Amino acid sequence: MMRSLHTAAAGMTGQQFNIDTIANNLSNVNTTGFKRNRADFEDLLYQTVRTAGTPATEETLVPVGVQVGHGTKVAATQKLFGQGSLQNTGNESDLAIAGEGFFRVQQYDGSFAYTRDGSFKIDSNGQLVTSQGYKVIPEVILPEGFIRESLNVTQDGRVFVNLPGQDDPIQAGQMELVRFVNPAGLQAVGENLFTVSAASGDPIAGLPGLDGMGQLQHRFLENSNVEIVREMVDMITAQRAYEFNSKAIQTSDSMLGIAATLKR
């Protein structure tokens, strides 16, 4: 059986995965803090018909070998943590990170997760939480009776509010950020959250604006870093590659048909 049938089929499978990745990027074009994925590919094993350097005569060697490839496979899907554009929302509980870093949140089971989504909410206890109700760590608990419109978060993460009858604001908390040596190694778990993996390294906590951390932008949100034009171009490229591989299968099938009709 012709190798090209299986080789082209591997190419079609790879391009289907590429389209799946692009579709996920496009579906999250309006997801706050979303980071686009990129599919990386590598070639499969080669069948070596003749090894380079094989003696041709007693005095000469074959300068190049003969190898036949067997297609492609997905090597990795990488998160690209480029900065998304910042959008002014005017909402007093919205925060965006301008630069490197993640917010740390505590899930219901007590474990920690990390996010770039700063669309926080204030629960009935005056605590800053995510849309799923996960607590922001370090905890920020606003005092009872505070004036909501007075909430202010500085670029270095200090949280200030005013109380009725008082002119001077009081500090209600201090935001922290977390960064990683290899953020691309984080495990995406949905809900705009990431968890630590062996590849990401341990979290490094710090104050916004210090030690390589980004600064906070109050009343802003970070948009997805998906660029629609780039994704559409990548989609067209993947579609054509898929089509070319299908043509290779059709050509191989036609060649087999010719061979099957040979007569003496």
Rank of each mutant, 00 (worst) to 15 (best):
Q107V: 04
A248R: 14
M213A: 11
E144N: 13
S111N: 10
E139V: 09
G209P: 04
F81P: 01
N162H: 12
T54D: 05
T251Q: 08
V181T: 14
G118D: 01
E144C: 03
R36C: 05
S246M: 13
V129P: 08
D202N: 14
L186M: 11
E243K: 01
S252F: 02
F81N: 09
M175I: 15
A205Y: 02
L177Q: 02
N225A: 05
R50P: 00
S254T: 15
S111P: 02
T115M: 02
P203F: 10
P203V: 06
S200G: 13
V74R: 10
V178F: 04
F102R: 09
P208S: 05
N182Q: 09
A205I: 09
R219N: 04
A248E: 14
T77A: 07
F160A: 05
Y114V: 04
S124V: 10
V229P: 00
Y114C: 11
Y114F: 14
E92M: 11
F220T: 00
I236V: 15
G190F: 10
T237M: 14
K135F: 14
Y114H: 07
N152A: 13
E149M: 09
I97M: 04
A172P: 07
A238L: 04
N152V: 09
I249H: 06
R158H: 08
G214W: 02
M2H: 06
V136W: 03
K73M: 12
N223F: 00
G133M: 09
T13H: 10
V196A: 08
N192Q: 15
R230S: 04
V159C: 13
V64W: 00
F41L: 11
L95D: 03
G118Y: 01
L26S: 09
V159A: 09
M232P: 01
R219W: 00
R3T: 11
E227F: 00
G14A: 15
Q239C: 07
V181N: 12
V196T: 14
G206P: 02
Q67W: 01
A205D: 07
V140Q: 10
E144L: 11
L177T: 04
L221E: 11
K79Q: 14
E42L: 08
K135D: 12
T57N: 13
S131A: 15
S119E: 11
V178D: 03
A113F: 09
G14D: 03
R158Q: 12
D156N: 15
V136E: 01
Q87N: 10
Y46E: 12
G145S: 04
